[in-house]
Structures are given as structure tokens and as C-alpha cells.
């Protein structure tokens, strides 16, 4: 079009070949928007998804009646209210937990951890509820699977160590981290999506992983790519931008 005229681009001479190639690729906005929307919907950000549909002028995926319940389930798990979460999951589709024993076990164990937490922090330090929950709910399942058993044993040791104010072992500490809840919550989310015949994982996640894998591969094969590939996240990277190395291209094959 108006190529010669209006585009007075000041070409930076010392650009990595790879970088130039990147500049040549123009990902379509539609594609990016699709990926973003996919993420918002499948990971459960209903308000953002709605706004995004309006602002980017794209259709909200039809599928989504489950989005609200998925958000609620996620919130319940995040807040440690496993009972409520399990009820909600079963309301949605009782099959999910029946068919996925590992997921069910993970939820129950999360519940046990919450119980232990509340038992040990109460004044009386009465651990009976935790013990009875463990023996009635988890123990029968643990017997069927060595992995479950290991997890259960580890969790039970919390009972002994938790009252102590000192530092916990790393493994035990991890049980109390909120990231455990988040992991379980996202597994539940995926299971619900899969049960509805949707794609379990947001495409964005696969893309991130794919990119990482590809970069690792390229580096492993000693392809000449810039030592640092800025991703455009502001901090941390600003100082790295600009000292790209130079050389040939990954793509030459």
C-alpha cells in the first residue's frame, strides 16, 4: 500500500536475524483474542470475559453455563471450604469425582489438611475429628493405591508437627501452602471442562508450554537464537533488552 511513503522505519542495524524474523510474523489479532478469550472462559474469569467480548467485539463462547459454578467451586476450594466445593461439583455432575479417584482423593486430603489445621489451632487441640475423618474417608481409598497411601501418611504427620511453632520440613510446609489449593482447584476445573466435552486445559497454557519446550529444544540443539528472548513483561526484562547476540537463525533447516 503506502509502503514507500508513510512507513519511514528507522531500521536498527544490529538486530538479530531471529528478531527480524519475529518482526515479520504478524500474528492475527483475532487469534490472540481467541486465545485470551479461551483462557478467560476456561479458567473462569466471567466478568473479564464478558467485558472482553464487548470490547473486542467477539462472541462469548456458548458453552458457558458452567462458568459461574466453576468460579464458585474454585473460590470454595481456595477458601478451604472443601465440603461446599464437593457438593457443588456433585451438583454439576456427580460422575466427575466418581470416575476420577485421584482427584477425589486430592480433595479429601485437602479437607483433611484443613481439619488438622483447625484442630491444632483450637485451644483444646482435640485431634479426634481429623483422625476420624482420616480413618473413615481417606484410609479406605489409600489402601487401593500406594501413592494415596504415601500422601496420606505425609499428611498425618502434620498432626504431630503442626502444633510446634518451629520450622516445618519442606514437604510438610508445602501441604500448608495456598498453592496446593490452587493446584487442586485447577485440576477440578479441568475435570469439569473435560466432563463437558470441552478442552480441559486453556490453550494459553499449552502455548506457554510449547514455547518453553521449543526454546529449550532450540537451545539444546545449539541453534543460534538470541540469548534472551524478551517476552514483553515490563520489569525484570527491561534491562535485558538490547543486549541480544547476533548470528543466524533457528529456522534454517
Amino acid at each position: 500500500m503506502s509502503s514507500s511513503t508513510v512507513s519511514v522505519s528507522a531500521a536498527t542495524p544490529t538486530q538479530h536475524y531471529f528478531q527480524r524474523k519475529i518482526d515479520d510474523v504478524k500474528p492475527s489479532k483475532t487469534d490472540i483474542n481467541f486465545v485470551v478469550m479461551d483462557y478467560l472462559v476456561s479458567e473462569g474469569y466471567p466478568r473479564a470475559a464478558e467485558k472482553f467480548a464487548k470490547e473486542a467485539n467477539i462472541q462469548l463462547p456458548l458453552e458457558e453455563e458452567s462458568i459461574q459454578s466453576r468460579v464458585e467451586i474454585r473460590q470454595a476450594i481456595h477458601a478451604g471450604d472443601i465440603d461446599a466445593a464437593v457438593t457443588k461439583i456433585n451438583d454439576l455432575n456427580p460422575q466427575i469425582l466418581d470416575t476420577d479417584a485421584a482427584l477425589h482423593f486430592a480433595l479429601l486430603r485437602l479437607q483433611l489438611i484443613e481439619l488438622i489445621r483447625s484442630c491444632t489451632s483450637s485451644a483444646t487441640s482435640d485431634v479426634t475429628p481429623a483422625l476420624s475423618f482420616a480413618s473413615s474417608q481417606l484410609a479406605p481409598r489409600a489402601a487401593t493405591n500406594p501413592d494415596f497411601l504415601k500422601d496420606l501418611e505425609l499428611t498425618m504427620t502434620l498432626l504431630i508437627f503442626l502444633p510446634a511453632t518451629g520450622k516445618l520440613q519442606k514437604e510438610l510446609g508445602e501441604l500448608l501452602e495456598p498453592s496446593l489449593r490452587r493446584d487442586v482447584a485447577s485440576r477440578v476445573n479441568e475435570a469439569i471442562l473435560t466432563s463437558m466435552g470441552a478442552r480441559g486445559e486453556a490453550r494459553m497454557r499449552s502455548l506457554v508450554r510449547l514455547r518453553q519446550w521449543a526454546e529449550a529444544k532450540a537451545r539444546g540443539a545449539n541453534k543460534d537464537i538470541p540469548p534472551v528472548m524478551p517476552l514483553g513483561l515490563q520489569d525484570a526484562e527491561d534491562r535485558m533488552i538490547g543486549n541480544n547476540g547476533e548470528g543466524a537463525d533457528v529456522m534454517v533447516q
Binding site: 524474523k21 490472540i32 517476552l231
Partner: peptide
């Protein structure tokens, strides 16, 4: 001041993809 960095990220992905 970020000059298309996000899209660059997307580009990165696509490019690396073609590499495989």
C-alpha cells in the same frame, strides 16, 4: 516504550513452533 512486546511473545511462539 514496549514496542509490541506482547505480540512479540506471540511471534516467538509461532517462530519456535515452525522450528520443530
Amino acid at each position: 516504550g514496549t514496542s509490541k512486546r506482547f505480540s512479540r511473545y506471540q511471534d516467538n511462539k509461532q517462530l519456535l513452533l515452525t522450528h520443530t
